[in-house]
Amino acid sequence: MELDLNLVLSQLLAGVSRAMVLFLLASGLSLIFGVMNILNFAHATMWLLGGYITFSLYEGMGGEGPLLLMIAIIGGTIVMAALGALTERFLIRRMYDRELPEQLLLTFALLLIVGDIIKIIWGVEDRSVYLDIEALEVGGTFINPYYFVIIAVGIAVAAGLWWFLQKTRYGRIVRAAVYNRDMVSALGIRIPLIYMGVFALGVAIAGFAAGVFLPLMPMALGVDIDLIVQCFAVVVIGGFGSILGTFVGSLLVGVVYAFSILIWPDGALAVVFLIVVAVLMWRPWGLFGTELRY
């Protein structure tokens, strides 16, 4: 196949937008693991729940136009933050001293429970938001302008998380708690509150991401399972607990996948997981993780 500039650019855009979808989902997963050492298998299911809640808020307000969607996304994010805080307080907090398999079992049970709650409340039909998006013609090819929104949101969330963790007092406390929670506690800082805040933030980002994706893809039962596998690939490549690593890992997976579809479509997914295998073999703590965390 001829690789002209337009094709390379459109495929690059497709890859980066795919990367940002993965980043928005995986960043919360990575943040929660990095700070709390909890591997939340139900993270993508919380994302799905956020999507359904945002959908209902949007429909409840009349279901017309991007402004109402933005309001619904903010509402959905707040609801998910509250649900995240409650989940941490009543479930996750009991698991901090348990082994990883027990944590995984609990969060897997949470995945099933939340999935069934979605089924009971919203039924089994897909839910999506229709915005009348017209394709943009750029250099002889068509581009979905909503991909620019996804990319902008992904970059903004990455920058916001970096600023929060590096430049704010609360962020410094969170980072300190990663390395020595006893010392932080000895300073009179309430670790459980920090953890609750981090878990709520991680789940809120997932809820926010789901709302942003609604005009792009329908929310449907089972999508969470597919996405969580890809998210694990991203955080394994980037390094658990590293936001920068998650960002780079997402870009790597998104762009490699996009170009593999052009060059070797049948092996696109295999190429991504070959990278995962390579990272696990030669740098098991990920590209940007630390051996300490590993």
């Binding site: 196949m1 094709l7 459109s10 495929q11 855009l13 497709a14 890859g15 937008s17 795919r18 979808v21 090819t141 068509f142 979905n144 991909y147 994706f213 893809m217 999508v223 597919d226 996405l227 996948y257 996009a258 579809i261 052009l262 479509p265």
Partner: peptide
Amino acid sequence: TQFASYISALMA
């Protein structure tokens, strides 16, 4: 969930 790459490849 993401067809952008497939759609670009088809159009190409």
